[in-house]
């Protein structure tokens, strides 16, 4: 029974990792850009929620409604004024710019908020749990997984059912020809990064409620997110969810054996999947 419990908790944790990863997956799918600052942007979003909640006396679930548009704007501005200028065949400039950004955000947050651990306080819901058969499941972890599924479902609908999603896919296929259709690739990219930051804000909400956070934890979140994306297969959002769950379960199992092995077990699962299926579990056909 303990194993079933461990796996269930791992699956729930995977929901959080999928939320970390969904924005990264979206941005990579559309503009082949790997944002090394993604983890730090999630942490930035957590601090935005914290500040909103503190200043306006709001519950985090309400504060996130204000933080999300703020982060959309951050993503939009970042893409328009910085990242669009470095996109191209050479992968070096975008990598180095986002790496620089990661360092700037991390240290900017350290300067503004100090290295102290913070937490978003959501009240009694944090400790609440429900019985699923013989297993007690925390309401917050369950809510995280459900949110991940909803977010990924919504992103898929956006991608395959809307005019904007059509423009995303067309631009991803061929930006020059998309221009001939009246699509402005740079605008499309800016909107995509804005949406990725909204997803990052949702991820930040659960990150901040479920555990302590401080300005330095961004890079580790980036690594989990990246592993989820690669395990799932580039360009597949449902694959990203599966990837997050694989990492979550592996970490859970590792921790059950020895608490020191939690993170290592996730990394090893990642390496194993990559050795067996180099293109991930659900690779996109035309990539």
């Amino acid at each position: 029974m303990i194993w079933v419990d461990t796996i269930v908790q791992g699956v729930l944790l995977g929901g959080l990792y999928a939320l970390f990863a969904a924005g990264l997956s979206l941005v990579f799918g559309i503009m082949r850009l790997v944002n090394l600052a993604h983890g730090d942007l999630i942490v930035l979003a957590a601090f935005v929620i914290l500040t909103m909640a503190g200043a306006l006396g709001l519950h985090p679930f309400v504060a996130v409604l204000i933080a999300a548009p703020v982060m959309f704007a951050v993503g939009w501005l970042l893409q328009t004024y910085v990242l669009n200028r470095v996109l191209g065949d050479d992968i070096l400039p975008p990598l180095l710019v986002t790496f620089g950004l990661s360092v700037v955000i991390q240290n900017g947050l350290l300067e503004g908020f100090s290295a102290d651990s913070q937490k978003l306080s959501a009240g009694p819901i944090e400790a609440a749990s429900i019985k699923l058969g013989p297993i007690a499941v925390g309401v917050m972890p369950l809510l995280t997984l459900v949110s991940a599924i909803v977010v990924i479902f919504a992103l898929n609908q956006l991608f395959y059912r809307t005019k904007l999603g059509r423009a995303f896919r067309a631009t991803s296929d061929d930006a020059v020809t998309a221009g001939l259709m009246g699509i402005r690739p740079r605008n499309v990219f800016a909107i995509a990064t804005g949406i990725a930051m909204v997803v990052a804000t949702i991820a930040a909400l659960y990150l901040g409620i479920r555990a302590n956070f401080d300005p330095t934890i961004g890079p580790a979140r980036l690594i989990y997110a990246f592993q989820a994306v690669i395990i799932g297969g580039l360009g597949s959002l449902w694959g990203t969810l599966a990837g997050g769950i694989v990492i979550g379960v592996a970490q859970g199992l590792g921790a059950a054996i020895n608490p020191e092995w939690q993170i290592l077990a996730g990394h090893i699962a990642f390496v194993l999947v990559l050795l067996i299926r180099p293109r991930g579990l659900f690779p996109r056909a035309n990539d």
Partner: peptide, 14 residues
């Protein structure tokens, strides 16, 4: 230069 990720109808709509 059709968009490979788009169906025929989506190519027209775009």
């Amino acid at each position: 230069k059709l968009f490979p990720s788009l169906s025929v109808e989506e190519n027209l709509l775009i």
